[in-house]
Amino acid sequence: MNNSNVELLKSLASQVRRDIVRMVHSCQSGHPGGSLGCTDYLVALYFSEMYHNPEFNMNGKEEDLFFLSNGHISPVFYSILARSGYFEISELSTFRKLGSRLQGHPTTHEGLPGIRVASGSLGQGLSVAIGAALTKKLNGDDRWVFSLHGDGELQEGQIWEAAMFAAHNKVDNLIAAVDVNGQQIDGPTEKVLSLGSLREKWLAFGWDVLETEGNDMEQVVGAIREAKNRSNKGKPVMILLRTSMGYGVDFMAGSHKWHGVAPNDEQLNAALVQLEETLGDY
């Protein structure tokens, strides 16, 4: 990837981060921390690495599909979908407000283009992604299925049911990723419920595992491309994204305290001066 493309993606990420803090500030509710930490991965997917059509069709045939399993980071997902053209960016101002299609957690129920399953109750998205990947195989559709999960989410048992199934059945058109920020609501994951070595765990479950810095755009893009190279070789692929919760806003970064807290007016301004407005705010 040439430098100009990386720079373009970085500038997109800056705008998405502005959207996130402004959305969460506007309704004084939502989850900025994980959203900011996963911005680079989602920008890389939707603006560089996924083949997808903003003229949304639920079945997504001949398209790459993405499933957000950690649905609480809906702000980043909504910003990415709007900035990709799935719906008007002005609709971002309705986030979490009465009558909005941008519900607190993503849902198909209100008909928002770009969402293919509800998420929020954790641990379910990997199973859904596996199902969608199997349908692609049955349909002779050789596009990929991507999914994203929180590291705290891996404490849910269903994840490991799904992990076993995907390896046993060689679901190798699936590229899952985990946002390894080491934080969850009640504190560091290592204090709340230790995850141990995620690399060793996923390897032991029969997956091909890559690790990358999750907030370095060039490395993120490189990891996704490497994951594609390793796909279709008999194993599902896992990308472990080493991220910082709240990345991009210095006073939010690296702490679980901004998992689900909205900035006040002063904090919003302090955040926005750190994030360049590259595409124009909604």
């Binding site: 990947a133 349909n139 799904a162």
Partner: peptide
């Protein structure tokens, strides 16, 4: 045989997979 999936003793995964299989038009 190609349209059947043995999921093992993992009912939660089975329900989630079924939801995913509908995306692309299957009737699980």
């Amino acid at each position: 045989p190609e349209r059947f999936f043995q999921v093992g003793i993992a009912e939660a995964n089975m329900i989630g997979m079924a939801a995913g299989l509908t995306i692309g038009g299957k009737i699980p």
